[in-house]
Simulated scan of single mutants.
Amino acid sequence: MLSKELCLKNNFTKCCKDSGILMVVKCQKENSALKECLTTYYKDPAFYEECKMEYLKEREEFRKTGIPAKKRLQKLPTSM
């Protein structure tokens, strides 16, 4: 999703990688910033509509093919 991509550009991921097991204590500020970023997207009606349309498109494809999106996006072997 778009919000996840935009919000993960903050320092939370880097902080967690650098802190290891102590990330719960050390990354509280970064975690709060991430939550705030995600909340803004969750409350945005335009973003909601974008996600809804993406879901409906994927559901329509599944109903046509019977193949889930994850499997459809995987590359098939070129030679057998």
Rank of each mutant, 00 (worst) to 15 (best):
D44S: 12
E54I: 08
K75A: 15
C51I: 13
M53D: 05
A33S: 06
E49N: 04
Y55I: 10
K43E: 01
K70R: 15
N31C: 09
Y41N: 02
L34C: 05
P68E: 08
L56C: 07
E50L: 03
E54K: 11
T39P: 00
G66A: 02
C37T: 02
R72V: 11
K43R: 09
L73G: 13
A46L: 10
E61Q: 12
E60P: 01
P68A: 10
T40A: 08
P77M: 11
Y41V: 03
E50N: 02
E50M: 05
A69E: 14
P77V: 14
C51R: 08
L56P: 01
A46H: 01
Y48L: 03
L73H: 11
E60W: 04
E50K: 04
R59M: 10
P45K: 02
A46F: 06
I67W: 01
K75S: 15
K52E: 12
E58C: 08
K71H: 13
R63T: 12
C51H: 06
F62T: 02
F62P: 00
Y41G: 04
E49G: 02
D44L: 04
E54L: 11
Y55S: 09
T39R: 11
P77E: 11
N31I: 09
E50C: 00
E60T: 09
E58R: 13
L76E: 15
F62A: 08
K70A: 15
M53I: 09
T65V: 12
K64W: 07
F62N: 01
K75W: 14
Y41D: 10
E49Y: 00
M53P: 02
K70V: 14
P77G: 09
R72D: 13
C37S: 07
L76C: 04
Y41H: 01
M53H: 08
K71A: 15
Y42G: 02
L73R: 13
A69T: 13
C51V: 14
N31M: 12
R63K: 14
P68L: 13
L34Y: 15
